[in-house]
Design a protein around this nucleic acid. Sequence first.
DNA 1: GCCTTATGTTCAC
DNA 2: TGAACCTAAGGCT
Length: 268
Amino acid sequence: MPEGHTLHRLALVHQDLFGGQELAVSSPQGRFAAESALVDGMRLESAEAHGKHLLHHYGPDRTVHVHLGLYGTFTEQPVPEPPPVGQVRMRLVGRTHVADLRGPTACELLTDEQVTALHARLGPDPLRDDADAERAWAVISGSRKTIAAQLMDQKVIAGVGNVYRAEVLFRHGIPPLTPGNALDRQTWDVIWADLVELMHDGVRVGRIDTVRPEHDPAITGRAPRQDRHGGEVYVYRRAGMPCLVCGTPVSMCEYQARNLYWCPSCQA
DNA sequence: GCCTTATGTTCAC
DNA sequence: TGAACCTAAGGCT
């Protein structure tokens, strides 16, 4: 679930369901109890996302910061408020809906200064209007680190995760281990533009779909679709399965403690 | 039912 | 480099 598109979608949903309302904020599990008391009953002014970080702004020095990590979830349901099921770190209750947060890496109250610092340590986000792709290019093109490594570095570019990394590199035939300083400007422009489009699609649809219609296995019959990431993709988690474009088995290796997927033929 | 794995990050050594 | 965090889903028995 949680790459940048998930958090931006949550920000939109929360803005829609809770924005402008005074919320009952609690921590049924207890681990956020002391801090939730400091925003309980306050009006949610706005919700925003930057990369994989979600921010709920209640007022000066009253911003709740959430990072879902690998398996955190945020779920919404209509009122009335049901008894909490499992470990609910934070619960929001508004006029019409209840939202429960489970298993996050981070759920904490930030001062305005800390919010500023958070934004400052994150790179441009393809899903934000204020994103400056030039900043990311300056870092990438000036480094020998591979494009695969830099796409996952949140201070270089915010919101891209393992799925979008694998898919955007595949879609443009880029070998994952290409050093950043060996990429040409045009290739970077194409990567950025495609991330903007793919990730906006992800926000709209609520899952990651990257396969172009002409390669859709349901149409070409080349391979069964695999759904474990929630959408339809070219190479992510398809190791050993035939490439949807050329039929070569998809490669995988462990790279910097994450699985890296690519087509050895299309991305030679 | 049990085991493995995961779209992520931080911290200790 | 590896462990910790601590949840859910899928595959297996």
